[in-house]
Each structure stands twice: as structure tokens, then as C-alpha cells.
Design a protein around this nucleic acid. Structure first.
Lengths: 341, 341
DNA sequence: CTGTTAGCGCTTTCAA
DNA sequence: TTGAAAGCGCTAACAG
């Protein structure tokens, strides 16, 4: 068995429009019109053109059409965080969902998504005809955003890019998210809710911390914050263990750092704490395993699918100039209460 | 704050090569050569061209270059499975890794990856200048593969496409994978290893089943197979429960269906089985949470990163015709033994 | 060493 | 109703 790709001769010169035209005894114009359903052609001619194209296996050259059309319907997709591991973001259920939902919504509107690694360099996208770029979760003053804007490529990101010309945003209301989660824990009797947060400079994480502090101040609760030095289940689990060993011992956990929810339950069990009796838990997570943990874990969803949908809607409106595009959209996280709280 | 994109006037007519040339008092050719570092130009002229381009914010039109070059360095990426939920594959740690590793390797070789949903239709990719397509985990006689091949787009997939002209493959040795896992379980004393397998038509899953049967026949072990009707943690957990409730009760579990490993441990605990004392467990999984479960779960890795790497190496060799391209590559899964077995 | 010219493959006026 | 010709923006022969 041999795979042949250009071994014997020229690798099958591709059929062009002009080839079809010649074969059919028509002009390029006529064949093009026939294939695209434009112009007024006699049914007979149209049929002949279409049939000849089909028979010859003609497939239009996408690049040539793009050049003609002046647009490539391609959009870039980058995640700002995870500078160390430029591709690790797909391991996160949140970004996995966000990515697939974005690709899906984009394609539905006729745009294809090209994947770029976190911290991409100019030279990696300079040769791509990108009409816009989506920068998910940029870090503070993300150079990525600067570069794209400087290249006059419209950027779609979070609210940190608000007020920048050429930039649009979709974001989550972090205040509301924290308030809803902590109010819920308080309603269930918790008085010392601890926060487990990634030690990152992402806008969202900084906002969550600020909102937590504000909530504590408002309710006269002590601030119990444990920072997770790096992403990954191991570091988060250890942070949860530290949080549970702290003084005063928290009676609720608000885990913003992404980890497998069943592992958080394991940690509570190892600490000898009954959930939800002695410890109430809410995890920020899109991980479906939360619903099957023992006990099932309450989650706060950051709604990646809706973020993606809104982002693409914004993008299409901006790119195609339909009406006046709003500068941004603010969404609210969704709390899913389960047995753990 | 208003986002402006084509509201006031024409949306900033883009600077072209000819504009730079005119401004610098040079010809297109000279500026092009200066910018691309080709040709022999006097340093002074080169400097002037580069400087003018920079000052005017010139950025070459990628589409025009592609047309000129005759190639777009774009490759498609589709997953054959998950017909029902065309984008759900990124929720699977295996596909998440495979996808990111593929994008990474491709970009390193100068190719960008565009994401396509499972079960994509012609019209969704017909307008993309794809030089090749990667079809991960195709279903049997996948129409996707047929369509791409018919369109003369080289396909990179698994061994099910072997012998098809224009198709290349990377695959895992399922026999060896099953043998290594079951031999290991047997070494540890297990005599009744049960298989928990997705009810799918994927080549890999069918091979795993066949290999399991062969192994059982060889060792005179009874076949204990539980099929999982659909993807997701819930269905897998229920399948595990069914498997553990079966007669004769298995003393080991080989879980090929993807699920959160900690949940599998939870299921064993609920069944009142000590792991690894009464039940030994190996999960096919890329999920990092396996290492942090209680007890840590032994995993069989399908090596998505290596599959991606080999696939892109093959692709580049085939597309750029470097030497003779092998038709395919076979990899061996990697068993990571932990406390659960 | 630099500039003129042709053409990548397609769509679209515009004329016949 | 059909076709000839221009041109999208770029690069590479080939002259000068």
C-alpha cells in the first residue's frame, strides 16, 4: 500500500473555472453565473454549465473568491491566560465550552474560527486573513489586544477593553455572581464563607476578590482567602485543604479556582467534614461531574455558551455594520443549587 | 462611549503595497523585496521602504499572498464522533488535548487550524481554502472522509482510512493497549476483569471490544461487558454500577468509556467495594483528576499529544513532499499505574 | 540595483 | 442572453 501525493507526476492540476468554460464551449462569466445562480441565463445553458462543472469535478478556488470579495470570513481565537502553557486552556471545562460554542456560533454565521495559542506572536497570525479576533480572558493590558488593535483588527474580548476604539466586549457581572453565591450560602446558615481563588491577574479573578471583600465588609464576615498559585487539580485541592485547616475554620467554601468538583468533595471528606452539614460548598465550574459527585456539588456557571453566542452576535453586527452596535454586553452567572449547599 | 466601525465614513481604506510604493517614491517590486528580504537592494532604499511601510501602518493582504502562493496553509479539523452534539467533543479531555496539541503542532509548522463541528456539511467548508483536513476518530465509512477525498483534499485520520488514496493515518494499537491493561490487572490478582465500553461504532471502540474478547478467550476468563448507551458522566457511572452489580461480580474494572475518574471511585465506594483490595480499576482517561482521586486511579493514556504530533509530521511530509511519506503510524497507549490497581 | 509587466482564479461591470 | 475585459493585492520573471 503506497500513499501517493505528487510522486508520479504533477499532483493533478486542479480544474479551474476557465477549464470548465472551455470544455462547455462557454465563457468564464457564463459558467460563473450559472454556478452562483446569478444573472439571467437560459435554462439550457445553465444546465450545461452546471453539468460540465460537476462532471469535471470543478471546485472553486476559495482564496480567489476571498480576494475578489475582499473578505475571508475568518476569525482568530486566542485565550489570554495560560501564558506558561499556551494550549492548556482547552483542559479547562470552561474554556473548552467557550471555544466550542464560539466556533459553533461563528460557523452558523458563516465565519470560521482559527485556533491560536495563548500569547501568540504577530508572525503566527500575520499571514492569516483575519477579519477579527476573539481574545478570551485577556490578562491586564494584554499585549495581544494591543497588537491586534494596532493592526486594525477588531477585537472582541471582556470589559477590560471597553472604551478602546475597535474593541467590543462581553462580560460577566462578577459582583452579582459573588453576591448570589454568598447570599445563598448565608441563607443556608453559613457565616464564615472562605474564598479559594487563582492567583492570577485576570480581570475576572480580580473582580471576584474585590466583590468577596465587599460582601464580607457588608456582612461583617471575616475575609478567608486562599490563593491557588497555579492551575491544576493538585494545587486547587491543596488550597482547599489549607482553607479547611485555617483558623477560624470556614463553614462554607466558595471555590472559584477550577478543579474537578468530586475532588473537592474528597478533600472535605478527608478533613472529616460532613457536606453540607458542617461545610457548605459552591464551586465555580462547568464540569458536568459536579452533578454526579457525592454529594452533588452546587455550581456557579459562567455561561460559556451564552458568552460565546453574545460575542458572535456582537461580532457579526460590528463586521457587517447592521444598525448601531452596542459596545458590550453584560451577562449574569447562573447558580445551580445542589446538595452540597 | 460609542464603538465606531464604519459609521462616520468609509472604514479607513486599508494601506496597500502600491500606496507605500507611491509614498516612498519606489516601485511595488522594490518595496515588496525590501519587506520580504528578497532581492538585492541598496541598504538605503531598503531602509526607506521599510520605514515608510512602518510609518503608514502597512500590513500585507494575506489573501492576496495566498492566491499568489497557491496555498493557504490552512487545515481543517473535525471529529467524526458525537454526531448528536456536534461540538461536545471538546468536553472530553482526550479530544481537548488532541485538539490543542494538533493546533499547536500545526502552527509550529506554519499551518493554522480551523475548527469544524462533527458532521460538518460541504457548504460549511467549501468556502475555506483547506489544504488538508484532519478527521479525528471517524465513524465507520464516515461520509466526512468520503466528501473530503472526493474534493481531492488530503485526509489525515485513523487506520480505517488506510489504503484510500489521498488518506493518511495515525492510530493506536488497541490490541496492545488491552493486553497491557488486562495483563496488569491479572498480575495484581484479578481474575474477572469487566469491560465498560461506549456503545459506539468508532473503530477504536470496536477494536477494544474485540481485543478484550480475545484476551478473555486466551485466559479462559468470562466476558463481562457493559455498554454505555451515550457519552457523559451520568451514563458511565450508571454503567459502572450495573457492572459491579452483575453476576459473577467482577474483581476488576477496565473502564474505556470516558468519565471523571473520581466518580468511578465514588461508585465503587457506594457499592461497598474497597479499591484496590476488592476491586482493581484502570480507566482509559486523560483526565488529570485521576492522579488526585481517592485512591489515585490507574489510567491508560491514549497519548493525544503524540498522536497529534505524529499526525502533523505526516501531514507536513505529505503536503510538502519531503521524501517518501509513510502511509501511517501506529502508537502504543501508555499505562500509568496508580493505587487503584 | 531597480522598475515594468504578467498573472494567481475569480466575479462583475459593461458592451455586444 | 452571453462574452470580453478589468481588477482584487501581491510576487516573480524579466528588462533596463
Amino acid at each position: 500500500m503506497t500513499t501517493r501525493e505528487g510522486q508520479p507526476g504533477p499532483p493533478a492540476p486542479r480544474v479551474r473555472l476557465v477549464d470548465v468554460a472551455r470544455e462547455a464551449g462557454l465563457s468564464k462569466t457564463t459558467v460563473s453565473a450559472a454556478l452562483n445562480g446569478t444573472g439571467r441565463l437560459s435554462p439550457a445553458v445553465r444546465e450545461k454549465a452546471v453539468e460540465t462543472a460537476r462532471r469535471m469535478g470543478y471546485r472553486p478556488n476559495a482564496t480567489a473568491r476571498q480576494l475578489r470579495a475582499g473578505r475571508a470570513r475568518l476569525i482568530g481565537y486566542v485565550v489570554g491566560e495560560f501564558a506558561g502553557e499556551p494550549w492548556a486552556y482547552l483542559d479547562s471545562p470552561y474554556f473548552a465550552r467557550l471555544t466550542s460554542a464560539t466556533a459553533s456560533a461563528a460557523l452558523r454565521h458563516g465565519y470560521a474560527l482559527v485556533m491560536l495559542p495563548a500569547g501568540t506572536l504577530q508572525r503566527e497570525w500575520a499571514d492569516l486573513p483575519l477579519e477579527a479576533v476573539i481574545v478570551a480572558d485577556p490578562v491586564e493590558d494584554d499585549p495581544l489586544v494591543e497588537d491586534f488593535l494596532a493592526a486594525r483588527i477588531p477585537v472582541f474580548s471582556d470589559a477590560s477593553v471597553a472604551d478602546r476604539p475597535g474593541a467590543h466586549w462581553v462580560d460577566l457581572d462578577a459582583d452579582a455572581a459573588v453576591r448570589e453565591s454568598l447570599d445563598h450560602l448565608r441563607d443556608r446558615g453559613a457565616r464564615r464563607p472562605a474564598l479559594v481563588l487563582p492567583d492570577s491577574t485576570t480581570r475576572f479573578h480580580r473582580q471576584m476578590l474585590a466583590a468577596y471583600r465587599a460582601w464580607c465588609a457588608r456582612h461583617g464576615a471575616e475575609e478567608l482567602v486562599t490563593l491557588v498559585p497555579e492551575p491544576g487539580n493538585g494545587p486547587v485541592v491543596r488550597a482547599v485543604e489549607r482553607a479547611l485547616a485555617g483558623e477560624p475554620r470556614p463553614d462554607a467554601l466558595f471555590v472559584v479556582a477550577e478543579a474537578s468538583p468530586p475532588l473537592v468533595m474528597d478533600a472535605a471528606r478527608r478533613a472529616g467534614l460532613a457536606v453540607p452539614g458542617e461545610l457548605r460548598v459552591v464551586c465555580v465550574s462547568e464540569d458536568e461531574s459536579a452533578a454526579h459527585a457525592d454529594p452533588p456539588v452546587s455550581t456557579l456557571s459562567l455561561r460559556p455558551a451564552d458568552v460565546a453566542e453574545e460575542g458572535i452576535t456582537l461580532l457579526v453586527a460590528a463586521l457587517e455594520g447592521v444598525g448601531s452596535t452596542p459596545p458590550g454586553v453584560l451577562l449574569t452567572a447562573r447558580l445551580q443549587v445542589r446538595a452540597s449547599s
